[in-house]
Every structure is written in structure tokens, then in C-alpha cells.
Design a binder for these strands. Sequence first.
DNA 1: ATCTGCCGTATACAAGTGTATACCTGATTC
DNA 2: GAATCAGGTATACACTTGTATACGGCAGAT
Lengths: 206, 206
Amino acid sequence: MSVLTGGKLKLVQAALTLITESRSLTSLGLRELAREAGLNPNTFYRHFRNLDEFGLFVLGFIAQEMKSGVRELRRMAENSDQAAQETVAFVYTYFLNNPAATTIAVRELHGASPLLRRALENQLDASAREMAEDIIERQLVAGIADSTILEISRMTIRYILFRAMDYLEKPDQRLAIRRETERFINRQFRGALVEHLSPAEIAERA
Amino acid sequence: MSVLTGGKLKLVQAALTLITESRSLTSLGLRELAREAGLNPNTFYRHFRNLDEFGLFVLGFIAQEMKSGVRELRRMAENSDQAAQETVAFVYTYFLNNPAATTIAVRELHGASPLLRRALENQLDASAREMAEDIIERQLVAGIADSTILEISRMTIRYILFRAMDYLEKPDQRLAIRRETERFINRQFRGALVEHLSPAEIAERA
DNA sequence: ATCTGCCGTATACAAGTGTATACCTGATTC
DNA sequence: GAATCAGGTATACACTTGTATACGGCAGAT
């Protein structure tokens, strides 16, 4: 069964707690985890071979969480701008509700462990493909090559993740960050529509 | 004198070396540093009060390095696209030549130390303002509000830093990353020129 | 009723950590 | 010429870390 019970769950929760209190996944110690979980240090070995394995497990755990979150994302929108706005609001709300997962993702994407980095990159890429697919299927933007939509999706997801920490930590800037992200997305797609034109030509027609 | 000599310099260099070998600034140990520098552990205390102070010092050190790098950036370009291309090439070349500074910046911008994070944010913001100023002064893009240019500059700098690690670690993707970054910039500015128009209106005129 | 695994515990060890105290040496300063 | 001081060293302490070994209880299968 994939349902976590007992000590293993406690260890994972301990990791999430510690990370939210501004630590990084790779810097967690075995004894530190056990302490936070209220377990004997050696219980760790009953569930994981070493800390690397633990890190990957936690990553898989939050990846699963995230996936079920993203699946709810499919909703209706009249036009692309509205879709962008709704998606941005949704994603940032998700971050607020899952601060530990968010912090892990941001920290480890550029962290010291190549293993975790690769795993996270794949995860992000999968999300980007999903986003692109959604945009293409629902024909939210017309006249842009599929490959370009995918590229912009990737950039957007990276950018949003980049802003996620600020969003969590600076409550007074949340609205500003959302608006800014919407502008980011809108400019990318509008820019893609006219990227074969020179700025002067665009200015003429605008 | 601001010229570093002897042990202090050795310690900073040791940090840069260790970080390039995939470590993070905040995770470095005092004894580890001394070992790498070939010094007695306690020599550390002759130069720094503690590891936090050391971290800030290293950050200041690379910030200075970066500034002198960015100053060379002022060069001529016929139009904005060319300027983007040259700037992108220059910045990524800088990353290649300063892998340690780059790695530190990327890691600590989202690292566990709020102190270093704030310091780096300020540093990035200063670079963004410089970039925006340059664009405005040289009138590389016309018809975009100064505040928008600054916002796009900020986004661009964040994005480039985001891609810097990949650029360092994946030599076979360097050209692709540069091209992608150029597209990013061009779309942002072109998109900004037409962001008051709906996608349909843009499509009509393109 | 016994055996086998799983899960948790207790103790122990070698190694590494940050830091305090004290000592040494070569310049610089008065 | 003596004193001061920055920079480097040696030893020591208390503490944390990952891990190995060994032990206990409780399930389910035989």
C-alpha cells in the first residue's frame, strides 16, 4: 500500500516541518529528523537506507501531492487572459496551502544535490507539458507554434516557482506578485504573436 | 586597504573552490574552510567573528567582482535585438568565467539564510536598475513606460540567473540556452508594446 | 506453539563540529 | 630598544553526527 503509517510518515512530516522553518532538504540530519519525529535515531534505518534515499522519497511524496493539486486546475475560462489570471491565482493559492512542498521545490531545484535537481527538473517539465497541452487543446492562444507554447509554459513555470518564496514570505506583496506574473504571461504570449516583426513595425501597427 | 592578502584571501578562495565543487555557502564549515585553505582552524577567528560574517563577506566579495564585470557591459549596438543578443552572450560568458560567484548567487538566492537572501536580492535589483537605465538612456526600445522596462529588466535578470546553472553544467546546451534567453527578452519587450491589445487584435495586424 | 519479519529501542564508537584559552612570531609604533 | 598588535598555531572541551551491533515486542504464517 502507498498509504504511509507510523514512523515513516512521522519522519516525512518532520522533514516538512523542519524545512518550513527555513532549512533545506539536503541539510537535514538523521538524528534531527528522528528528534522532531519523536523517534529513536535508528528507527530511520528501518525505513530508509540513507539520507539520499530519504530525500528522494520526500520529493516523490510532494510530487504526488502536487500532481493531485494540478489536476484540479482544469477549469473553464472564456479567453486566454482570463485563463492566465485564474491559473496564476490557483497556483499561488496552492503554494500558500503547501508551503513545505513549495519551499523544498525552490530550494532543491538549485541545491547541492544533483540527484534531487534532476528529479525536480523532470517534475517541472512534466507540469510544463501539461500546461502546454491544456493551452493547445483548449485553443486559448491561436497562431503560435506548439513548440513555442511549450517553451513559454516552461519559462512561466520556472518564473512562478522563482517568485513562490517571495509570495509565501511577503504577504503584503502577494497581489502585486500575482499581477506581475499575469503581465509576464501575457507579454510572453503576445510577444510570441509578433516576434517576427521588428519593434518599429510593431509600433506602427499598435 | 581593500586588497586581500594572506589568510583572509585564502579562506575566501577556499570557499569559492568548495562551492564550485557543488556545495553551498551556508553549509561550509569553519574547519573545512581552514583545511582547504591550508590554515589552522582558529586562524578563521583572526578574520571573522563567525560563519555568518564570513558568508556576508564572501557575498560582498563576489558582488564587487560582478559589478566590475557588469561595467564592461556598456557597448554599442545598432538596435534592441542586437543589444539583447550581445548582452545575453556577455552575461553568459561572465558566468562561465566566474562559476563560483554564479553558483553562490543561484544557490543562496533561495537558500536557507534570510540574511544572504536579502543581500542578494538587493544586488540583483541594482543590476536590474542599471540594465533598465541603460536601455532607457540608449533608447533601445521606444514606446514602453520606464516602469515596465524596469520590470522586464528584473524578470530578465532573474530568468538568466535561473538558467545560469544549466549553462555551466550542460556545455552542449549552451547555444540553445542563449537563443532561448534571447527569445525570452524579445517576447517580453514586443509583448509590452502590444499588451493593451487583445490576442485577436494582434493577430489581425500581424 | 513456534518461527519469521517488521518496527522500535538502547548502547557504543569514531569522527567531525564550533569555540575557548594560551602561546609564538614578526612587524610597526612610540 | 621596548611595547603593541595582527596573524598564525596547538591543545582541549563539549557536543553532534552517521552508523554498527544487539535486544525486545508484536504481527501473521506455518
